[in-house]
Design a protein around this nucleic acid. Structure first.
Lengths: 145, 145
DNA sequence: TAATTACATGATTTCGAAAACATAAGGAAT
DNA sequence: ATTCCTTATGTTTTCGAAATCATGTAATTA
């Protein structure tokens, strides 16, 4: 569905959000450990999230990544997916045609439309706060056992 | 959503189905041309479809690939996806966790479930005949302009 | 202001899907 | 039977995402 980078990004954002709810910053080493991802690669993805304005960072001693508390509940998954993978998931053709539209549709164009719309709606309405609270309460997990 | 191989496989199957409706066989060169795919690579994908029992083949002069007419309307997309990409699309975790279940769910486990279910339902109920007829009538297309 | 901590970024390597290559094998037509 | 057409299959190469490596930059603290 999404690229590996995007999966890492979503998990990292949830983890950062969880700590930001408690006014704490987290370093990329801790993030990588918690979401089971390669450190150096994770650092790069975090940069993209910073440049996209999804998360903030502070250098130096006691620095780290965080999300301003007021933004946590208003940051939606769609922003992360769009920053990392672009909009191909939402607008790309289900069969990979470079040109696929209402006027020149692929055989499954209409069949995919409802599914893509539902996916888009889910990403547009799911915010980081609810996901972070799920982690915090122990209902959900960021890595395998 | 699907791998490139799977996209080729779906398009090839639709094209073959279209010709099989008219009792014609088609060669892999023609298939590759019609669906805008690399010839050699397409040939390999066709082998997988043959071994999976989705299409049949005849060697020699006037040979080619075809689908027995009675099977066209009862062959569903899910069979092709399963043969090429396996069941990861249906059962894999939306965030890439190797272990993700009701008892140890990722943060978006429930949110993805309904989408995956709808996708599965679509693939299980869409058959090659309707897609082939769409191509035949000129409503839909297998390649870009 | 020097030392330390942690983020930032460009270059390089790895790895697997995708694609291409080369050759074998089967079947129909004559 | 032999020729030729077409599918079948194993090997190799390409290419881009993923991952790593190496180095630079900023900010805090003492």
């Amino acid at each position: 569905m999404f690229s590996k980078s995007c999966n890492y990004a979503i998990k990292a954002a949830i983890f950062i959000a969880k700590h930001s709810l408690e006014e704490n910053k987290v370093g990329f080493v801790d993030i990588a450990k918690e979401i089971d991802s390669p450190q150096a690669f994770t650092a790069k993805i975090l940069q993209i999230l910073v440049k996209s304005g999804i998360i903030d960072s502070v250098k130096g001693v006691n620095g780290g990544f965080y999300i301003p508390k007021k933004n946590i509940a208003t940051t939606y998954l769609v922003e992360i997916v769009d920053a990392i993978d672009g909009d191909a998931v939402f607008h790309g053709c289900g069969l990979g045609l470079s040109q696929c539209s209402e006027t020149h549709p692929c055989p499954v164009h209409d069949k995919f439309k409802s599914i893509r719309d539902e996916l888009a709606h889910m990403l547009e309405t799911t915010n980081l706060e609810e996901l972070a609270l799920g982690i915090k309460s122990g209902e959900t997990f960021l890595k395998s056992l």
